[in-house]
Design a protein around this nucleic acid. Structure first.
Length: 436
RNA sequence: GGAGAGGUGGCAGAGUGGUCGAAUGUACCUGACUCGAAAUCAGGCGUAGGUGCAAGCCUACCGUGGGUUCGAAUCCCACCCUCUCCGCCA
């Protein structure tokens, strides 16, 4: 959510900056709503004030045993008027809030203007893709060839966009998550957290998934067969960002506790509505995938330095695994709803002959913190909104894909990256599993 | 799932219809005393919003949402959550 003070002060500027990300901010409508809100709030509070004064008089008179009929008569007419005013004011505030909740964050001044991903800016590249002297296979052929990846089984059990892994490949998947967690906790100073995979609507609103992106989420009604309201619907998390960032919702932390740095490994669930036909083959786009997520809560003046270091933490994983990648600064039109600035890390996938997103690192500034009232306080000063950031460190499924494809051998086996071997019981290679 | 208890300020804990935004204790901040500290004493100390140049004034908030009333932390209804015991269970 944007700062309403900023909207009041300079709606034109906000509209201009939002236009850079393709969002049309209806200035006239906002000003109309806000004008009405002001009038009704003043009137309502005025009426409340009158009622309170008179009611207190009644109390005092009764206390002294005096007659109250005159005052009672005076206050009698106020009730209906007040009720109408309060109702109208509540409606206006609901409407205003709805309006505000649908406005995306303002892009940071360093973000390039652009309509879509074609305007993203390459910041850096690490390593060079390996040259193969045999035809490269994609991860599906490799995994199935090894007898360790089974999409048919997943379709039978659940449906499309799920996967089943077996044996060493399943272990590789687990090893990757463990490896990432260990690096981030031991080398980058993150605190590991375990969090719920189902969250309530307030949490989804806090990080910005709701109200706008409801169809991207999996809903879990608490009670079968009944119409579920907001209060008794839970949602499967699309990323650990949601439960982890919401740890700070409605909290005021001491300034000297900052920065807070959390890392969590969770499954992520996305309905992928609207992406039918995209990446239908393989593990690139799944309804369920694992991710190790980095989250930071920092003082406002530190958030851009934090974005750089958080992104570097994610890059460390790719480097340790020897996976070539490039770092992209997203343009205004390609950033997520809540982000002020985002770097994507894209890993090289030989079978696609291209770089594909494997991590997205964003600074949300106070956008999420304002929605969830996550604040910090230095000494006796006023509580202040903190800045939140997060990034994938990394998406486990896509990392697995990248390893399969980049480390494949001519015979269909896959070499285990050296850094990962301690988490693989020392195994150096994935080789064909005899079918069961 | 059954039975019971309870949700009040950072924490603890009073308050069962009327100057209650809320006693008291504690924590914290400022000052006095002290060489300094402790102890003691005095004062301060919630959040959000509106309005005003400002001092200030006003409004809302006692789990959430409704209701009763001139007036609700207090009464009524519904819901949520926590705790204890029993049952079941990874």
């Amino acid at each position: 959510m944007l700062d309403i003070q900023l909207l009041r002060k300079d709606a034109a500027l906000v509209a201009e900056r939002l236009a850079a990300r393709g969002f049309v901010f209806n200035t006239a409508y906002f000003e109309e709503l806000e004008g009405a809100r002001k009038v009704f709030q003043t009137r309502t509070q005025d009426a409340q004030s009158r009622r309170n004064t008179l009611s207190k008089q009644i109390g005092m008179l009764k206390g002294k045993g005096e007659d109250t009929t005159a005052v009672m008569a005076e206050v009698a007419g106020l009730g209906d008027e007040l009720k109408d005013l309060e109702t109208r004011l509540a409606e206006l505030q609901t409407e205003l809030n709805k309006f505000l909740m649908d406005i995306p964050n303002l892009p940071h001044e360093s973000v390039a203007d652009g309509k879509d991903e074609t305007a993203n800016v390459e910041v850096s590249r690490w390593s060079t893709p390996r040259a193969f002297d045999f035809p490269v296979r994609d991860h599906v052929d490799l995994g199935e060839g090894l007898g360790q990846l089974d999409f048919a089984a997943a379709v039978k059990i659940t449906g499309s966009r799920f996967s089943v892994m077996k044996g060493p490949l399943a272990r590789l998947h687990r090893a990757l998550a463990q490896f990432m967690l260990d690096v981030h906790t031991a080398e980058h100073g993150y605190t590991e957290v375990y969090v719920p995979y189902l969250v309530n609507a307030d949490s989804m609103r806090g990080t910005g998934q709701l109200p706008k992106f409801e169809e991207d989420l999996f809903h879990v009604p608490r009670h079968a067969g009944e119409e579920c309201t907001d209060a008794d619907t839970l949602y499967l998390i699309p990323t650990a960002e949601v439960p982890v960032t919401n740890l700070l919702r409605d909290e005021i932390v001491a300034a000297d506790a900052l920065p807070l740095k959390f890392v969590a490994h969770t499954p992520c669930f996305r309905s992928e509505a609207g992406s039918y036909g995209r990446d239908t083959r393989g593990m690139i786009r799944q309804h369920q995938f694992d991710k190790v997520e980095l989250v930071q809560m920092v003082r406002p003046e530190d958030s851009y330095a934090a974005l750089e270091s958080l992104t570097a933490h994610a890059e460390t994983i790719l480097q340790k695994l020897g996976l070539p990648y490039r770092k992209m600064a997203l343009c205004s039109g390609d950033m997520g709803f809540s982000s002020a600035k985002t770097y994507d890390l894209e890993v090289w996938l030989p079978a696609q002959n291209t770089y594909r997103e494997i991590s997205s690192c964003s600074n949300f500034e106070a956008f999420q913190a304002r929605r969830m009232q996550a604040r910090f306080k230095a000494g006796q000063s006023k509580p202040e909104l903190l800045h939140t950031l997060n990034g994938s460190g990394l998406a486990v499924g896509r990392t697995l894909v990248a390893i399969l494809e980049n480390y494949q051998n001519a015979d269909g086996s896959v070499t285990v990256p050296e850094e990962l071997r301690p988490w693989m019981g020392g195994a150096e290679k994935l080789t064909k599993l005899t079918p069961v």
